[in-house]
Structures are given as structure tokens and as C-alpha cells.
């Protein structure tokens, strides 16, 4: 499915950056929104006329309504909205750092609400569009290592599900994508087998127009089907 116009929040690196590249190469006019302007400028240079760069920190939620209007005006419409911003600072297993946790809450949750509400409200009126939240397999279960990250992604999944149930009657598609470990800045401290950002983005793009929650690999779908069903008394004894 080809989208004419798209907004990607968190477009300067990782999966978001690759999503911009893929969509722009398919002919979509993409608004790339992120904090790091020089990295957005590289995308603009790579796809002149197809990528529009907007410097924005998702912590500045006050800017969102006006910026959203400006972006949609410049795009000439909106067919696809992807909230991809996310942070996951390294947290030790015995650490309870309030500041790190608040960063995750603000970027992964508050920023998502600020932007997705705008997109959802618009789509409800225009009666078309795809609203996409990039969640994580981490949101499927409360694990020991990243309590607030897990909770923030669980929030996103639940929030997107509510959006889906609200907006389906208006013909709007709401897609939640749950990547596993991906080789990006976010997961650079994680030592495990990772999918490349390009590969993850390529799979993500195929899921944008499908309502529901989507894993990027069959293995994840299978593994998390089981993990979600492990009884709590057993799960807390595991090192997952």
C-alpha cells in the first residue's frame, strides 16, 4: 500500500531513519521529525523533495499542536503517522534512578500521547489514515531488567489498542509494531543477537496498513506467545 504523505517522529536514527528512507524511495512525501537536525538534513539531501525535516524534541509537548498543523500543511495531507521515538537508558538490576525513569516516561509515553492524539483526532475527521506506534516485545511482560521501559511500552500497546477500538469505525487503521532487539543506538548496550535497523524497517513498512499488533519475526511471535502465558510465580524465578 502506497502512502502519499507520512510523518515519522523519531526519524534521525535507527528504525525511524530507515523507515523514512524506505518510504521516500517509494515516492511518499515524508516529514522527518527529530531532535538532531544535522541527521535529518542528511535525509533531506539524500531524498530532495521527498523528505521535509522538522527539528523537535518530543519533551516539548506544547509545540506539538502548532507543529502538527504546520507539517500537515506542508505535506498537503496526512496518510500515515508513525510514533517511533523511544529511549531506553542502561539501568542496573539494582538501580532505581528516578530521572532515567522520567526520561522514559516523557519520551515513550507523554510524547506519544501528545503526537498520537493529534494524529488520531485528525484521522477521525478525515476518516482515513494509518496510525502506527512502535512498541517493543519488552512491553509484553514486566521483566526484572527494565521496569519502566517495559511499563512504558506496555502502556503504548494498551494506548494503541484503545485508539484502534476508537478509530476503526472511522476507517482508520491503528497498528502496533513490537520489534525485538534491533541494532540501533537504543539497544547498543544490549549484548545479544540483533536484527539490523534496515531489516526491521522493511518489515515495519509492510505492517503499517494492517490493524493489530505485529511482531517482526515469527520467532518472537512464538516465544512471546509462551512468555506471556508463563504463570507469575514461575516467571519471577526465571532470568528473563
Amino acid at each position: 500500500m502506497k502512502h502519499k504523505t507520512a510523518i515519522i517522529i523519531g526519524a534521525s536514527s535507527g528504525i525511524g531513519r530507515e523507515i523514512v528512507r524506505i518510504l521516500a524511495s517509494q515516492g511518499t512525501i515524508v516529514a522527518a521529525v527529530a531532535r538532531r537536525k544535522p541527521m535529518l538534513d542528511e535525509l533531506v539531501a539524500e531524498f530532495p523533495g521527498k523528505v521535509l525535516a522538522f527539528e523537535h524534541d518530543v519533551l516539548n509537548t506544547d509545540e506539538v499542536p502548532e507543529l502538527f498543523l504546520e507539517i500537515t500543511k506542508q505535506l498537503g495531507g496526512l496518510d500515515l503517522f508513525v510514533y517511533n521515538s523511544g529511549v531506553m537508558p542502561e539501568v542496573e538490576s539494582s538501580e532505581f534512578d528516578f530521572q532515567k525513569d522520567m526520561d522514559m516516561v516523557n519520551v515513550n509515553m507523554v510524547g506519544a500521547i501528545a503526537w498520537c492524539n493529534q494524529a488520531a483526532n485528525r484521522f477521525q475527521h478525515t476518516k482515513h489514515g494509518c496510525l502506527v506506534g512502535i512498541g517493543s516485545v519488552a512491553g509484553d511482560r514486566g521483566r526484572q531488567l527494565q521496569p519502566v521501559y517495559n511499563a512504558s511500552k506496555a502502556f503504548l500497546h494498551s494506548y494503541m489498542e484503545s485508539m484502534r477500538n476508537r478509530l476503526c469505525r472511522y476507517g482508520v487503521i491503528v497498528s502496533t509494531i513490537k520489534p525485538g532487539p534491533v541494532d540501533t543506538d537504543l539497544a547498543k548496550h544490549m549484548k545479544m543477537k540483533k536484527m539490523s535497523a534496515r531489516q526491521a524497517a522493511e518489515i515495519c513498512v509492510t505492517k503499517f496498513h494492517k490493524n493489530g499488533e505485529h511482531y517482526l519475526a515469527f520467532f518472537h511471535r512464538f516465544a512471546f506467545y509462551i512468555i506471556k502465558r508463563i504463570p507469575s510465580p514461575i516467571f519471577r524465578k526465571l532470568k528473563l
Binding site: 498537503g76 485528525r122 475527521h125 478525515t126 476518516k127
Partner: peptide, 17 residues
């Protein structure tokens, strides 16, 4: 945003918000 609507010409081959 309450003013926003999806409109088209009578042919419905192109839409605009």
C-alpha cells in the same frame, strides 16, 4: 480540527483533506 473533512470531486478519483 472539527472543520477538517475529506472531500473529493464528483468522480471520487482524488481526495483531499
Amino acid at each position: 480540527v472539527d472543520r477538517l473533512d475529506r472531500i473529493s470531486g464528483f468522480g471520487q478519483a482524488e481526495y483531499a483533506d
